[in-house]
Nucleic acid binder design. Structure first.
Lengths: 311, 311
DNA sequence: CACCCCATGTGCAAAAATGCACAGATATTT
DNA sequence: AAATATCTGTGCATTTTTGCACATGGGGTG
């Protein structure tokens, strides 16, 4: 401690400030200390680590290569520290981070967040909308909405809602390429779909399940929104969640009686936090909102002769 | 800083030691300071965070609920700090973390690591063998060996080797259940395979590609080693990489002329580090080792009428 | 060119942190 | 029961850290 043994984390805070400000004096103002203190902490850190972290210039400090490597790690620590600062301190006012797939996040949750925040002024909801569920175990998210049910008992999991997917096209596309009358016609069309290596779950492998040859997937994108846009622009067909495709008017279903996929969103929390008031409340809201929106997720389809479900 | 403003990360180090040791005196011995110092740092931290982190007992300190929450975050910081301590310090002696799938990691790389370490005494190779490739972008690994090629240009990717998979059975199983003579016979057997929700890449979805109904997958495990074990025990059939199944004698191929899958391992590094001496050297070793072991990865199969490759 | 501003770096005084000695409480051992 | 070991907590002396004043150097402006 204090330089006699091991790495002093406080020195890392000084390091971060200098890296950010680019000068001792800037960091000092930021931290509310004397610049001489900053210089000495940096020197102490360099001694402890036996590394030169900054080049000294008359107009400031510049990170060395070693310094840059260190910065990445210290920034990661900072992210943890920021969660820590909120997590243990306040109690009821704080941040809940939701990790959700883009479709659910952007098309369902985002329009409803405003009302939630209004009803709970001390609550901050941070939504991470990505293609892959972030790790609950690393505390990157407090609550995840995923497509698959995690194994083991570390998490509390419940079924949130089923949702349906259809093949969609724009009317313009169908006018130009002719109507699709039977499943066999699909081979004559191009599709939008996920980039292959980003299909991290079989539940997202819609096209293979419908029987679309991967060579037909000429428009590959990691974003469901972009896939929808391509379909809307009349470039191709696409398999889209109904609540996504039908959130704006214009797209028509292709062979809905014959081809329809069913998937499930799961609500996942860490087992030790499901009862906390913030998270518990948010879970209730999510349950209620999805229950109220069942017509969105599960629109009536006439008679699907082929409803494919992964298990 | 020092309690006048914001969270002092050094106090978190003290907190961690007390959480671990369960007493001021234990933490003090661990840190090489006086226990009174430890008490005062904890008190300072509690004041800064306005939280009671420990219950005081005559025989030690016990984490409160708030303290437990804080501990998770601080342990995450510690993990980053440990990487930091190695990353920027040494230079050429250091750790390279490889992330590889279990098959490649355990059956190919592990037996060869010893020789590598002997030839490079200052190099430590840490091998993370999991079911999913850990994140290079989060610096969780320096080098990944994966099944799919990442998109974008953030990483440097090269094809390491192809490898073949066959259906395997134990002779005992075939004696009890009769020989498999044609593809249609496969429907009468049970298989070992991956747990559904852990099939994170279509490249791992062997069974579906071979045409095995998911109801036949009666033995599901996230570990290829366990799947191999089940096949060896005569419980079922399984689709296994040849270099895995044939690393020990005993298993026989089923319909190898007719059914054979081909996959590829990719060598992935961060673009900005491929030239570093440690990593560059390790990449060369990996290339050489896999090239020398082509007979392992790509054993001759007689005449595969159906060789399935994902793209 | 002179002046001003802003940067880093040195040495000493002041403030903060830590070590040390001691006290009290509890649990375990003799 | 008494002795011993181990724990936490208080107050004062010592050590370490930080602030302050000053010096030097570089860049920009009038």
């Amino acid at each position: 401690m204090h330089g006699r043994r091991g790495l002093d984390w406080r020195d890392l805070q000084y390091f971060l400030a200098v890296s950010r400000g680019g000068a001792l004096s800037v960091a000092a103002r930021e931290l509310g200390v004397e610049h001489t203190t900053v210089a000495r902490r940096i020197q102490s850190l360099e001694q402890t680590m036996d590394a030169t972290l900054f080049e000294r210039h008359p107009r400031g400090y510049r990170l060395t290569r070693q310094g840059e490597q260190l910065l990445a790690g210290v920034e990661a620590m900072e992210r943890e520290a920021q969660e820590v600062a909120f997590g243990a301190g306040g109690g009821l006012s704080g941040t809940v981070r939701i990790s959700a797939l883009e479709g659910f996040g952007n098309f369902f949750l985002a329009p409803r967040i405003g009302a939630l925040l209004e009803a709970n002024p001390d609550l901050t909801v941070e939504m991470v909308t990505i293609q892959q569920i972030v790790s609950l175990s690393r505390r990157q998210a407090d609550l995840a909405i995923g497509l698959t049910r995690p194994s083991g008992d570390r998490f509390h999991t419940e079924e949130l809602t089923d949702y349906r997917l259809f093949i969609y096209a724009s009317p313009d596309y169908l006018r130009r390429h002719g109507p699709v009358r039977r499943r066999g016609d699909l081979a004559d069309h191009i599709f939008a779909g996920y980039v292959d290596e980003l299909v991290f779950s079989p539940a997202l492998d819609y096209l293979a399940e419908v029987g679309i040859d991967s060579r037909q997937v000429r428009i590959q994108n990691s974003s469901i929104q972009a896939q929808k846009a391509a379909v809307q622009a009349g470039l191709c067909l696409g398999v889209l969640p109904a609540f996504v495709a039908e959130s704006t008017p214009g797209l028509v279903r292709v062979l809905p009686e014959e081809i329809s996929l069913l998937r499930t969103y799961w609500l996942i929390t860490r087992g030790d936090e499901a009862g906390s008031s913030r998270l518990g409340h948010l879970c209730r809201v999510l349950r209620n909102e999805t229950r109220a929106a069942q017509a969105l997720f599960l629109p009536s389809r006439n008679t699907a002769a082929c409803e494919i479900r992964p298990d």
